[in-house]
């Protein structure tokens, strides 16, 4: 019996169990605070689906030895451009989403390639350089949003120049994945398509990780000397992983936006990388190892903490935005913890 329990606990890990327990406790607390638990759960599920792909984008980067991809805004920006172009082309519904994805994927491939070239030149400092590449790209795009020649009135400010800070997708592909085939069980809604899409992306990444190229990529990440001795090209494999990660970032933001209902331009993508990194770390990943399981568990836990903690905290401490502060503490605390674990302490 004991052995069985241990076998069950081991892959999840004690810290995870504590967080799961805490999350459960939050739900119980929510129930006693007379909060609408079903709404919380609905929100929780949606947030998992909408953030999951951004978290998934961390997997190839971590496995190829680059570490958590702090430069994911590079991909996010590509996704935003794709989305804006699809609106500019006046696409609606599923069409708009597909067009947005089709435009942003090649964009992200090119951007990811360039980013990969850079990362190959700064081995050992990828996290720091990635962070600032992300920041730089976002602030550069701030200028671009001001001067890009979009004409659609949904995108532009009605007066003056430049694009809106938030662009509503209500007429375009708002909830395009959330709504169809949603299953209602009592008061709980399961966004079927959103999950199908998320799990499909997970499956694609899993397939890749078990292909010849994917296995090579993991070998490169785990032991580059071994990889070289087995005739693999380290730089090329890191490049593939960077491109994959960037493309996933682009798709990730589109999924995020369709669920959120808006595109957020300007400085909104600036700190998105940290939330994604924190999520996968909470799921049990480290800066050198990550699995699809870590992505799903991590997104579930991290988003759960955010969604449920917010109203509960507001009931307990009605003043101020305690949950936002807690998010900051948890998010950066977990990253900091992972960094100290990664060591280099000698």
């Amino acid at each position: 019996m004991k052995g069985k329990v241990q076998a069950l606990i081991k892959p999840i890990g004690i810290p995870r169990l504590i967080i799961v327990a805490f999350l459960g406790l939050l739900y119980v607390a929510a129930f006693f605070c007379k909060l609408p638990v079903n709404d919380l759960l609905n929100g929780h599920l949606v947030r998992v689906g909408m953030n999951g792909i951004l978290v998934l984008a961390m997997v190839p980067a971590i496995l190829s030895g680059i570490g958590p991809n702090f430069g994911i805004p590079v991909g996010i920006v590509c996704g935003l451009i794709g989305g804006l172009i699809s609106i500019e082309l006046d696409c609606y519904g599923a069409n708009a989403f597909i067009v947005a994805a089709l435009i942003s994927i090649p964009l992200a491939t090119v951007a990811g390639y360039l980013y990969g070239v850079l990362l190959n030149k700064v081995k050992g400092s990828e996290m720091m350089v990635g962070t600032y590449v992300g920041f730089s790209v976002v602030s550069l795009m701030c200028i671009a949003w001001l001067i890009l020649p979009f004409t659609s009135m949904e995108i532009k400010w009605p007066i003056g120049r430049g694009l809106r800070t938030t662009i509503s997708l209500a007429k375009r592909f708002d909830k395009i994945l959330n709504a169809p085939f949603a299953i209602h069980i009592g008061k709980i809604t399961i966004p079927t398509m959103l999950f199908v899409f998320f799990f499909a992306m997970c499956f694609v990444v899993w397939l890749f990780l078990n292909s010849k190229a994917g296995i090579a990529m993991k070998a490169v990440g785990q032991n580059s000397k071994f990889a070289i001795a087995s005739g693999m090209n380290v730089d090329q494999n890191r490049m593939v992983s960077t491109i994959l990660s960037t493309v996933l970032g682009a798709i990730g933001i589109l999924v995020y936006a369709q669920s959120y209902g808006f595109f957020q331009l300007y400085t909104a993508p600036l700190m998105m990388a940290f939330a994604a990194v924190a999520a996968i770390l909470i799921g049990g990943a480290s800066s050198t190892n990550a699995t699809i399981f870590h992505v799903i568990l991590g997104t579930f836990l991290f988003q759960g903490l955010l969604v449920v903690a917010l109203p509960v905290a507001n009931v307990i401490v009605p003043k101020g935005n305690l949950s936002e502060v807690m998010r900051v503490v948890v998010q950066y605390g977990i990253i900091l913890y992972a960094l100290t674990k990664a060591g280099g302490g000698k």
């Binding site: 702090f70 050992g124 996290m127 720091m128 962070t131 900091l336 960094l339 100290t340 990664a342 060591g343 280099g344 302490g345 000698k346």
Partner: peptide
């Protein structure tokens, strides 16, 4: 504890 990664830390 994070020698070599001081800046990101």
């Amino acid at each position: 504890k994070t020698k070599g990664q001081e800046m990101i830390t």
